[in-house]
């Protein structure tokens, strides 16, 4: 298809607008507090990496970063693993209540975390998981599992049914077929799904902070703590904010080609 210069200009303008707030965050993270609150500076006049070193050398922050990464990874693995067979079932078979079940799964994406935070606290306290990475990982399954089923179902729809039938004729058992033949075929879908699960678990904090106290304090909770200690430590907050973008950026870099290859969406 013929493409002019227009798309490039529009894209460049959009990317510039998109990057401005992020640039501002980086800018803030390099300026001392007094400088931030006293004037507007388009770039840091006396850049300092002091707060970055502070965070990277403070065991509380480092531990919290590890905690966040751990529950996000546990959640991503659980979500994708349990969603795969379910998405296959929804795409390939009709069974009693399938459509209702599918929509019920989606309704779990519609429960506002702000409302259910307290009941969640009661539940995880009662089962003895409170203040562990497992509490957060399991709680995030509430929205990530349905989302994973939804996205994977679309990708599975793009794989022709004949492949299932050919494998059955060749004498493959279902588990062997699913793992050896089917999973490699939807590798793109798994990559994209894992990215979305990672993302939504990483950015969610209301449940993460409600379900933890000291041992499994997530990164975001340590950030909110730094509000109160000495007024607003904007530089520290901004530096921590910049660091929270790093894991996500790494993950998206790995799945960029999968996204570019696209969803082979079967049905909704």
């Amino acid at each position: 298809m013929r493409r002019g210069v227009m798309p490039k200009i529009v894209l460049a303008a959009y990317l510039a607008m998109l990057m401005l707030p992020i640039y501002w965050l980086i800018n803030l993270s390099l300026r001392p507090n007094e400088d931030i609150v006293s004037r507007m500076a388009l770039w840091p006049h006396h850049p300092t990496l002091e707060k970055y070193f502070f965070i990277l050398n403070d065991p509380t922050w480092v531990h919290a970063f590890g905690v966040s990464l751990t529950y996000v990874l546990i959640n991503t693995v659980i979500s994708v693993t349990v969603a795969l067979p379910a998405a296959y079932a929804f795409n390939r078979f009709s069974f009693i209540g399938d459509k209702h079940l599918f929509f019920w799964l989606l309704t779990n994406l519609m429960a506002p975390a702000s409302v259910y935070a307290m009941p969640f606290f009661n539940l995880y306290y009662a089962v003895g998981l409170f203040d562990t990475v497992w509490a957060v990982a399991l709680a995030h399954c509430l929205f990530n599992v349905p989302l994973a089923v939804w996205i994977l179902e679309g990708f599975i729809g793009g794989v022709p049914r004949e492949i299932d039938e050919a494998a059955a004729i060749d004498g493959y058992s279902f588990p062997r077929f699913f793992i050896r033949i089917f999973l490699p075929l939807i590798a793109n879908g798994i990559g994209v799904t894992a990215f979305f699960c990672f993302m939504f678990s990483w950015v969610e904090q209301l449940l993460a902070t409600t379900l933890t106290a000291t041992n499994a304090l997530p990164f975001a909770a340590v950030m909110t703590r730094s509000y109160s200690v000495s007024g607003m430590d904007w530089t520290l907050l901004a530096a921590a904010g910049v660091l929270t973008m790093v894991p996500g950026a790494v993950v998206i870099w790995f799945v960029r080609n999968h996204i570019a290859k696209g969803f082979a969406l079967g049905r909704v």
Binding site: L18, V203, Q205, T224, G241, T244, M245, G248, I252, W253
Partner: peptide, 13 residues
């Protein structure tokens, strides 16, 4: 990667 960046920032940040 640039386009996805805003989504990867925790909501309170």
């Amino acid at each position: 990667v640039l386009i996805a960046l805003p989504m990867l920032i925790p909501w309170n940040v």
